[in-house]
Design a protein around this nucleic acid. Structure first.
Length: 403
DNA sequence: GACCATACGAGCGTTAGATC
DNA sequence: GATCTAACGCTCGTATGGTC
């Protein structure tokens, strides 16, 4: 899981502890993970997927990570946007006058008999009185909420983590949707207005990178000033598994019902990579690209004849293919006949892979049956792909009928 | 150096929509 | 209906870095 760069920089400075083991307190469990480098930035790994699986987190479930030391963290997992007495929501531009509570939190916390009432929402040391509406269709803050949005202030799409202090009091933390890091609201010294700055973990209880806790300035302050939760220095990513930030509730639909439906939608989206461990009924797969000396001028590979053919990544690389720079490739068949075949790009994960256009026509023209094993040799310098052998032996599976 | 765990790239199967 | 194309997801092999 990606660690926001601003958070990492403030916690570790320029010395990111890559490959160090960190401890993450997950309820009763103390998990060990590592910091690794991905896309030039730090990520939690080596244990993160286990956490995701054990909590059965889905794509876009929320995760709140609090640094309690240089190599120590606490994690809260928000299933269905709810974790214990906290929940995640977002400030929608078109809904400045209200703030919706997830259905699960409302029903679990208030049941069906709550008819609404005045509530207090705390942002740091300040609080506002806001009416909490409730009914069969869920709960939401309404009267007074617009004033909160304007005076705090809360930008559009910012994430809000509400933690109930009692049935009508909530402590609210605000998170930047782009960085995933908490936004710190503090009093201006010039006047009584609140100003907004990035809340970063400069004064956390400090461990050295060997994990030894040191008495450092700010440590006692942290523990003295924290309320029911440790509000210092936290990372929030709403993608439990994905590495790219993709905030919950980012779209700007118009009604609270729509917002509520979006909240529900979150848990419908399956996480990439099922959290459920699958049985491994595996068969050995034949390697299709021959491992050769990198200096070798040729690349040998095999493919089974089917309606399409995808090119080995190395061949695509030699041809310097890109989605905007597709090329014809000279393909020589067994009889020495050469045809130029156009390539096409295909999105694959974060990049692209490449295939030949109209490949089935060439197979027909060359009288090659579907299922035959084709042996290719690609010359890196001449950029000619040569079909060197055809072995007709494969029985193809019948394509499944479409629904 | 062997071993381990994990991330990641690549291969492959499958599905759905577009087009003929 | 057949074919083509795009996209998704699962699996495997390899690379990587740490530990013993």
């Amino acid at each position: 899981m990606e660690i926001p760069s601003d958070f990492a920089k403030n916690l570790w400075g320029e010395k990111i502890p890559y490959y160090k083991t960190v401890e993450i307190r997950d309820g009763e469990k103390l998990r060990k993970m590592r910091i690794r480098k991905k896309n030039d930035g730090p990520v939690f790994t080596d244990g993160w997927m286990l956490l995701v699986k054990e909590h059965q987190l889905k794509y876009k479930d929320g995760v709140l990570i609090t640094a309690v030391g240089k190599l120590k963290f606490e994690v809260l997992c928000f299933k269905d946007l709810v974790c214990q007495n906290s929940y995640i929501t977002a400030q929608i531009e078109s809904e400045l006058g209200m703030c919706v509570m997830p259905d699960k939190f409302y029903h679990d916390f208030y049941g069906n008999n709550f008819k609404g009432g005045m509530a207090k929402v705390y942002f740091g040391e300040r609080f506002w009185n806001v009416r909490l509406e409730g009914g069969s269709d869920g709960g939401y803050f309404k009267d007074g909420w617009r004033k909160v949005v304007e005076e705090v202030p809360i930008d559009n799409d910012y994430f809000l983590v509400f933690t109930s202090l009692d049935s009508v009091s909530f402590d609210v933390s605000v998170f930047d949707p782009d960085t995933g890091t908490e936004v710190f609201l503090k009093k201006s010294t010039a006047d009584d207005d609140m100003i907004v700055e990035q809340k970063l973990p400069a004064d956390v209880c400090e461990d050295d990178l060997e994990g030894n806790q040191k008495d450092v300035k700010g440590k006692s302050k942290v523990y003295e000033t924290q309320t029911q939760r440790n509000l210092q220095s936290r990372i929030k990513r709403v993608d439990a598994a994905a590495s790219t930030g993709s905030p919950v509730l980012k779209s700007t639909d118009l009604t609270k019902r729509n917002l509520r439906s979006r909240i529900k939608k979150v848990d419908e989206a399956p996480m990439t990579g099922s959290p459920v461990l699958k049985s491994t009924n595996l068969t050995k797969r034949k390697k299709t690209v021959q491992k050769v000396n990198p200096q070798s001028p040729v690349l040998n590979f095999t493919r089974f004849a089917e309606h399409r053919i995808r090119l080995p990544a190395k061949m695509s690389s030699v041809l310097d293919l890109s989605p905007v720079h597709l090329k014809e490739v000279s393909v020589q068949n067994l009889t020495g006949e050469v045809k130029n075949i156009m390539t096409r790009s295909e999105k694959h994960r974060k990049g692209f892979r490449y295939a030949f256009v109209g490949w089935s026509n060439y197979l027909k023209a060359w009288n090659i049956k579907i299922g035959a094993e084709l042996f290719f040799e690609f010359n890196n310098s001449s950029k000619v792909l040569t079909l060197t052998k055809v072995v007709e032996k494969r029985c193809v599976k019948k394509k499944k009928l479409r629904a």
